[in-house]
């Protein structure tokens, strides 16, 4: 299997075959993760540093568990509390860490492109855990694995992505991944939360949930990212829930076997009705979390293989 990448910075650089290969490996790790003994040694001897310049509990925990299950030495750095407050630049921080010889660097940053910038300055493999509004590749991969396991395939599905598309890196990575795998993508949300140039994305755009959800196989809800908003994108939370929140009535327009997804953390009663989120027949939200660990194990395993090959070549 070939996965010719030094870093995982985004979905944009991946080919469909590489995505399939990564998901296949993740499937194996998903099985491993259900065993009583969950340990493997793919990352044994390697050091993984999680650098989060933006608050995260779930993603950071997921990367940490993934690394530990594969035998890496994992260290978490909450970057907000540290050197940036002392005026150190992103590049200096990267160079400092680089001097400690990490092998895998997992980075989240509030600005688009920051992880690419950092990757240019270090010798190790860099995984993008979300940069600004740009990409969140492991989220798109775990969504893809969840869909593939629930639907039995990852092509020719009709998939609706709903909510705050403009501020969402999850949406961008998913649009790219699902497009590469030849699915029909529908974006649903108020026009104020759609990015510019959306008509050129090769997707269908709706501002009416009922029309947009008509006969879809997958309903992917996005978090309404209040912290990203300048204010004034929507009139109020309750009007948003009324028009764009997923409830039983709106979901009834989708196919009867449609699954419901959410990258978390959820705002119950803002973008999704609590009973739908908890409906074990429709909601795969817990599966997404489970697949998250498996996908991150697979991604780090593949990058570590390349890292070892590269070092053998250099030696």
């Amino acid at each position: 299997m070939t996965f010719p990448h030094r870093h995982l910075l985004g979905i944009e650089a991946l080919r469909p075959g590489e995505i399939t290969a990564l998901l296949d490996l993740a499937d194996q790790y998903a099985s491993l993760n259900r065993q009583p003994d969950k340990h493997a040694d793919a990352l044994a001897g390697l050091t993984q540093i999680n650098m989060f310049f933006e608050n995260s509990t779930r993603t950071q925990a997921s990367f940490e568990i993934a690394g530990k299950r594969l035998g890496a030495d994992v260290m978490n750095m909450a970057m907000q509390a540290s050197s940036l407050k002392k005026g150190e630049t992103l590049i200096d921080t990267a160079l400092t860490l680089n001097a400690m010889h990490p092998d895998l660097l997992v980075v989240r940053h509030p600005h688009s492109g920051a992880v690419d910038l950092l990757a240019q300055k270090v010798n190790c493999a860099v995984l993008n855990a979300g940069d600004g509004r740009h990409e969140h590749p492991t989220q798109a991969l775990l969504d893809a694995l969840t869909i593939r396991r629930a639907k039995g395939r990852l092509h020719r599905l009709s998939i609706a992505i709903c909510g705050d598309i403009a501020h969402s890196r999850v949406a961008r990575s998913n649009i790219m991944l699902l497009g590469k795998m030849e699915n029909r993508i529908r974006l649903i949300g108020p026009p104020t939360l759609m990015p510019s140039g959306i008509s050129e994305f090769g997707v269908e755009v709706f501002d009416d949930m009922k029309k947009g959800l008509q006969d879809v196989d997958v309903v992917m809800m996005l978090r309404l990212q209040k912290e990203r908003m300048d204010g004034g994108f929507i009139p109020s939370e309750r009007e948003y829930f009324h028009r764009f929140g997923l409830d039983a009535e709106k979901l009834s327009y989708a196919r009867t076997d449609a699954i419901v997804m959410h990258p978390g953390p959820m705002n119950r009663g803002v973008e999704i009705d609590g009973t739908i989120a908890d409906d074990i027949n429709r909601s795969v939200i817990q599966d997404q979390v489970e697949m998250g660990v498996a996908v991150r194990m697979a991604a780090m395993d593949l990058l570590a293989r390349n890292l070892r090959l590269m070092r053998e070549g250099a030696a």
Partner: peptide
């Protein structure tokens, strides 16, 4: 435009 949106 599309480019800036893809770059976030």
């Amino acid at each position: 435009g599309k480019f800036a949106s893809l770059r976030g």
